[in-house]
Design a protein around this nucleic acid. Sequence first.
DNA 1: AAAATATGTTCCATGACACGGAACAACAGC
DNA 2: GCTGTTGTTCCGTGTCATGGAACATATTTT
Lengths: 249, 249
Amino acid sequence: MTRNNSQGNMLDKAMTVLDCYQPDGGAFRLTEIASRAGLAKTTAFRLCSDLVRLGLLDRDGDTYRLGGKLFELGSLVPRRFQLREAALPFLQDLFEATHETVHLGIREGREVAYVERIHGHQALSLPSRIGGRLPLTCTGVGKALLAFSGEELIEEVLAQPLPRLTPHSVTDPVRLRTAIEQIQVFGLAYEEQEAVLGVCCIASPVFDGSTAVAALSVAVPRARFRSAQLAPAVRTAALGLSRALRSGG
Amino acid sequence: MTRNNSQGNMLDKAMTVLDCYQPDGGAFRLTEIASRAGLAKTTAFRLCSDLVRLGLLDRDGDTYRLGGKLFELGSLVPRRFQLREAALPFLQDLFEATHETVHLGIREGREVAYVERIHGHQALSLPSRIGGRLPLTCTGVGKALLAFSGEELIEEVLAQPLPRLTPHSVTDPVRLRTAIEQIQVFGLAYEEQEAVLGVCCIASPVFDGSTAVAALSVAVPRARFRSAQLAPAVRTAALGLSRALRSGG
DNA sequence: AAAATATGTTCCATGACACGGAACAACAGC
DNA sequence: GCTGTTGTTCCGTGTCATGGAACATATTTT
């Protein structure tokens, strides 16, 4: 006992505490935080008090939640913030044309990081969440990004076992390779129930030169999926955003 | 010299560093961070290295920017996240009805904290920013929140000098009091160039019972401002969201 | 009612580690 | 060349984070 297993400085421990909230931003009691973070109760108490004082944690009775300061700082992260600002009008156009769930994502390592997600009243239950990440190979946005991120990344991804979110996820490197070539030719990425059963997706990359800096997509319930109607809307939105980024700087 | 003016523990210093990025999420060099945060160069270096390792800061050559981890965590802040999720469909409706800039905000102390802001291609240059804050008394969303946050807060706000963002900002407590009473009667808050010259705004509170948990608004260039057209759209969106929150839990 | 088991909180001696000055390395520019 | 920047490493000093023990309070068990 009394082991300080999570070695590191005070900052590391603070992050360990904040990382407890990863899947959903729930509410935790002090003891729960201490055990999850592998800290002594006293240490967790002092740490949480500090975090509350700084606004990184909110205290509500006996439970702690993520604090408003984090939201404040998170909104300032430049790549996300600037991209969102430039993209929003085009995402709105796309939503208005389709009234389906619209995504905007960027590549971060071998994953998609979702920057924006807008939807109407019929909210699909999707694993994609603003600020969340998914494998590049199981999502429309991800495949669109992958296809235009350079050959070396593609080979790097293909060399490793491909993750499987549903039975429809593409796990055969050969099939994925041909899919990528299709995407490179047409500038559109299709995804059918590879991330969530019952949901299809069509995505298009946003270019800066010849590499993709982002991608946007429309996710549609399988029953309503009509690629002939969606594809032009997605493409024009992506091209419009590409053009806006080029002229905007 | 060599003074440790920013007393406090390591966490405090880390926050001081992150707070350097407040107005815009710019990029800073190490020396700049050190001087802004009042830290010795060595300390700033070690701190920034730690922050980069944790993903709270991104290093790009010789400059540091806010890191993706902050965005990730910020998106999980529960009050913001859940409210946004519930509100988005109604904000979309409102945008589609007006094609003007739409805001969603909550009260945080004596300020509005903006949770969402959507706009089309004609982007107004506004001080409201997602994650940003403004005085309650200078904005439509703020006044809508203030009017339904209980009498004691109103008196507290009226007792202090009222901030002035433009020459049109209401700084007379008596005038503000009557404005608040109007808002309480009609459930709509008007704001004309009180936050930004040339921009008017009409807002409506989102209720949980008899107190406002949020407010949404439409901001319109003065030339296009037609309250008869906007008011019903804003009101129906706010009422719809109130109803959705009540039934949703 | 007492005992038991939770919770969050305060106190404090100890020692790990954050601190910042000095020194170094790699540039840029009068 | 020298003098001004940067960012970076090293290291002795002393601070402050640490976690065990003890306390307070509530809820549950005996």
